[in-house]
Design a protein around this nucleic acid. Structure first.
Lengths: 241, 241
DNA sequence: CTTGACATTGAACAAATGTTCGTGTATTAT
DNA sequence: ATAATACACGAACATTTGTTCAATGTCAAG
């Protein structure tokens, strides 16, 4: 069998094919052993081996230790689909759908007001106000607790976020160093987006804009973390002259 | 709690809702215990109990002894969709699908080099490098001639675009006032993103960042418009300290 | 009150499923 | 050749996960 020259080997391709086929046929992903059967491989480890490669190459994603947690991220580009376009289309449908995430727009974020964080339970979204984002665009695999806010006003320029931008955040009340967070500052009575760094005896809030200096907060209590910023989307609207 | 009068109890409904929600959120169905958590039930047997009922009633289907093999057959009847989500989700399904656009990533945009604009014809994209974006997020309905670039370096800070951002552009060699364009400036030998304004006898290039002043170009020939910026996407990566 | 159907719990069990490791065999590079 | 890498197997293992069962609680009807 040929070595892995560049892209996918025959096996990889067969696995990808089986994945989408099985998913649409059964409504849930196959187990490792089922994948093995489909390509005539008896050892689960070998399947795991291939699966890891596919994951590295960005074709699939899976959760550790969770059964049947494989999802097809990037369906096999069907070179020249001799095999009826219709079935292909339908087959892709499931995969594409599974790759879409609908994120509720919880409200607007204004510098001068606290952030409206949606209640943990009622995660319900109006069709009216939600953003559909491809899972592949989201850095984190953990899709839960995501919500979006629309930015109002120019007051977050230093975070490289402008009026009208959509900020996708993940609910959180604490953060790790280097993460961009939305914080409410009691002192200043305002909400900002900053990179978070906990230092010896203070907290450093670093603007995304390298040209601007950081803010230091001595008292951790005067700062409330509302969420971690996951993504920023700016739709350019043709501003009138 | 009321006895089973006719149809579904509150629990049933919540389970159904969770099922579809989890499925679309993760790409695979939940386990019994995960369902239990979602309705605050600690015993797996009770969940099984409900699941069996739902199956009898024809709402779901599942395979014996197979993990995460739950399939939603009949979405919650939309009668009085107090809980809207489920039907909405399914209803959206088709729409969402049709709303996906796959945009090729043509390359990187660096201030010091011209933009690699893809050839008009071979609009075909590697599966390797493309971005999936919901049509609803794109300001323009005209999806043709879209391509994406990844920003390299901090040199476009004044455009509120940072290293790693993804810029979605539409091929164009001219622009209207107020549109954000990617332009190559012969004078400065660089590419920048600016709002475009044609004035009396010069062209004004206005940075997105209101705090920065415009650039004026007298000679229209020293400026080449590469495309109109349609959207900017920033994925926040947890920068290490 | 008693009865019986429904609801709920917790624990124990068995099956399924993902992970790891040692080993062996090709293929490619040095 | 010889080492290094990629591919492959199978067994052992640890979890996850579905299933079952005995026991208890709840509530409406007789």
């Amino acid at each position: 069998m040929a070595r892995r020259q560049s892209g996918l080997s025959e096996r990889h391709r067969k696995i990808m094919e089986f994945l989408t086929k099985f998913q649409t046929a059964n409504g849930y992903p196959p187990s490792i052993r089922q994948i093995g059967d489909s390509i005539n491989v008896k050892s689960t480890s070998l399947v795991d081996y291939y699966l890891n490669q596919l994951q590295e190459m960005g074709y699939i994603e899976r959760e550790n230790h969770i059964s049947r947690s494989i999802r097809v991220i990037q369906p096999l580009q069907s070179g020249f689909s001799v095999t009826g376009t219709v079935t292909d289309a339908l087959r892709n449908a499931g995969a594409v759908l599974a790759n879409m995430v609908t994120i509720p727009i919880a409200g607007r974020i204004v510098a001068s007001a606290p952030i409206p964080v949606p209640a943990s339970d009622l995660n319900y979204y109006d069709a009216e106000s939600s953003v559909d984002i491809a899972r592949s665009l989201l850095p984190s695999k953990d899709i839960n607790d995501l919500f979006a806010l629309e930015v109002s006003g120019d007051s977050m320029i230093d975070a490289m976020v402008n009026d009208g931008d959509i900020v996708v955040m993940k609910k959180a009340d604490s953060a790790n160093n280097g993460e961009m967070v939305a914080v409410w500052l009691d002192d200043k009575d305002e909400t900002t987006l900053k990179y978070f760094y906990k230092e010896a005896n203070r907290i450093r809030l670093q603007p995304a804009n390298p040209n601007m200096g950081p803010i230091y907060v001595q008292n951790p209590k005067s700062l409330r973390i509302m969420g971690k910023v996951v993504m920023v989307i700016r739709q350019i609207k043709s501003v009138a002259a």
